[in-house]
């Protein structure tokens, strides 16, 4: 099981870096959602279910919706 956790840690870092360097804003929002998804699993593995639940609620739904509304408000050429 520890191998799976280490692999998911590495994947989190890769997704976070990709969210920073990507040019498309929607792709960055989706990658941020995936980061919070995997981080939520890692919180469960670290025996912190309350933090994981908050991360799931904020990261999966709320921040994705807010990012999308913000991207809607940006200029056309920046998308």
């Amino acid at each position: 099981m520890i191998y799976l956790d280490v692999f998911l840690c590495v994947l989190t870092v890769i997704c976070a870096v990709a969210a920073m360097v990507t040019r498309k804003l929607v792709a960055a929002a989706i990658l941020a959602g995936v980061v919070s998804l995997i981080v939520s699993y890692l919180f469960v593995r670290m025996k912190a279910p309350d933090v994981a639940m908050t991360e799931a609620a904020i990261g999966a739904a709320l921040s994705t919706v807010i990012f999308l509304i913000a991207i809607r408000r940006t200029e056309e050429e920046e998308r």
Partner: peptide, 12 residues
Amino acid sequence: VALVYGLLSFLG
């Protein structure tokens, strides 16, 4: 956690 995730990811 799984329950909350299953519901909210649908919203996302």
